[in-house]
Nucleic acid binder design. Structure first.
Lengths: 342, 342
DNA sequence: CTGAAAGCGCTAACAC
DNA sequence: GTGTTAGCGCTTTCAG
């Protein structure tokens, strides 16, 4: 590992000058610059980022906390976050909490403030207290794809209007004539995906308030995965066989709905319409391709990286909430007009 | 940010002693240890990992280079790698090369040897030269899930016997009576997935060498994605309508095969059997659930992390090649007996 | 058992 | 323009 000092010797200058050349700081004569650059090339010198980080008091890394990178949505976000970080000369540390808040705390404890100045937080199982503590220790924390733009959590966040996403999804179903709509929510009633459900209620109320009456009994709160959607669909269909559409708060469980429908011998969308939210990659790969409400993931990732870097650079008094672009409907094959009464 | 020195003052000792307490090095009296620990707790001290890394000459991070974390296979590997790294007190830097070898080179240039001592390399678009150069600069490089255990690349690697995986997949088809087998390979003929195809040829030869004659014309080399598999299937079926099974070198394109079959009105497995290789998560979620040959991804990830850490600790003369466990057949719904003529 | 001191490789004032 | 001088916060001999 050749060091700055070695390069300096080789070029017959001092370390400071080499540093200046490499970072385009201060004034350096053209001739010396040449010599330094030549020495750098000849020795194959690469700056030691750890030493630089220590001297500068900040490391060029961002930490991304997710509950499990195996959940298909996270990689899509991580990909964009990594690109954005890379554009800014930063590296991305991926921290899986493995759905365990202790792991999350431990990560925050170890990384924040030293190895990484900025922390991007997805729905990882983290206690708010830990995040605030992390902040106090000097790290910049940004919540990513916060689901409630209207309820800033007191922490900087990039919000996405998932309530609006829910509204759009429901409206699409209503526009197709559906009135017997079941709902599957991939979280607890007060959990992260609750706002999406509120959007459904909004749309129902706008169209025909009486539709809300039975909704409660035709709503299932499940784990945010394929199995959750599958089981809930079977139960919903058993209880209310006349449902013509299912609103699913997330694409992943929506895949389970598709499977359940197939196993029940129901054709989608002829017998049953299904709509999800998020538009993860495989939504277009499902059979039938899933109609869904897309959400600005890439944009949110970029905004999150931008914000955390701004925060590192210049802390702000009020924790800012920024809203990523609006969700939009993506019509594919899993939704169709309400079946005619047979 | 409270520092070691502050803790030392607070406890009435010197930094060296605090360091000894925290790392259980040297001898420290029980009483002083108590006082130090108390000071640490009271001040909420956390060691600065950057400073430690600089002093120790190595950072607690591992870099994972992948072409795109969005490819569904990588997250599965990354998840396990992150867990293994975490167990060893290391962090995982995820480096997307975005299918661009320049990005890969740049990453290696910046990270290796300074921010991260160890580099795990998946099929990222990297030049071998860059890896060797990286190694020479003092980083430990490990190739992950190297596809040809019998051809060590001169770089440390964790190999998986994909040729055997190909053989198992083919044998399963042969056992079901299939003789008209098409093949779809997710790489160039000499590309990364070639060994899997060799496994197919092995099995064919063992069963009936004459089967190999037409194989060449019934093999498609495609991009390793759904679209690749889809298009290839259509072409293959057009050229050879009597195919009763398709061997696909990877699960991702196999999904495309399933779609193409459906669009052609072929039932899987009644009319056409399809088998993939890898057993990525969605293989079980496909409709019909994909029969495939599973590969020891989790084990490979762990072994890779172990190896790279060993290498960091004690460089070895001969680049070791270690073989992760054997692939195994996972029978699901996409394969069945050869259809009866007529 | 504990303290003093040097140094990891780089940056950043400030002198010359 | 370029060199000098201090550190950044921690680890690690080596004394005491």
């Amino acid at each position: 590992m050749t060091t700055l000092t070695e390069v300096a010797h080789h070029a017959g200058v001092t370390p400071a000058t080499v540093s200046n050349v490499l970072r385009n700081r201060g004034k350096v004569g053209a001739a010396t610059r040449e010599r330094v650059l030549a020495a750098v090339a000849e020795l194959g010198y690469r700056p030691n980022l750890t030493a630089r980080a220590l001297a500068e008091g900040r490391a060029p890394t961002l930490a991304l906390m997710v509950s499990s990178i195996a959940n298909p949505f996270y990689p899509e976000f991580a990909l964009e976050a990594e690109r954005a970080a890379r554009r800014h000369g930063h590296f991305l540390l991926v921290c899986n909490t493995d759905n365990d808040s202790n792991v999350g705390s431990a990560y925050l404890d170890r990384i924040a403030g030293t190895l990484s100045q900025g922390v991007l937080v997805m729905n990882a199982d983290l206690h708010f207290d830990d995040l605030l503590k992390t902040q106090r220790r000097g790290a910049s924390v940004v919540l990513c794809m916060w689901e409630k733009p209207d309820q800033p959590p007191g922490l900087p966040c990039i919000a996405v209007d998932f309530r609006q996403a829910g509204r759009l999804a429901a409206q699409h179903l209503l526009d197709l004539g559906h009135r017997r709509i079941g709902a599957i929510v991939g979280s607890e009633p007060d959990g992260v995906q609750a706002a999406r459900y509120v959007g459904l209620v909004d749309a129902l109320r706008d169209t025909d308030p009486s539709l809300i009456a039975t909704l409660g009994t035709e709503t299932a709160y499940v784990e945010d995965n394929v199995e959750g959607g599958y089981a809930a669909t079977l139960a919903l269909l058993d209880a209310s066989p006349d449902l013509t559409a299912i609103f699913v708060s997330n694409d992943f469980p929506a895949l389970g709905v598709l499977h359940a429908a197939a196993d029940r011998g129901l054709r989608v969308p002829e017998d049953l319409s299904v709509i999800g939210i998020t538009d993860i990659h495989w939504a277009r790969l499902a059979r039938p391709a899933l109609t869904t409400v897309a959400v600005p993931t890439a944009q949110a990732a970029q905004m999150a990286v931008d914000l955390v870097l701004e925060l590192i650079h210049a802390p702000m008094e009020e924790p800012p909430t920024r809203i990523a672009g609006e969700p939009w409907l993506v019509v594919r094959q899993s939704t169709g007009p309400v079946p005619r009464k047979g």
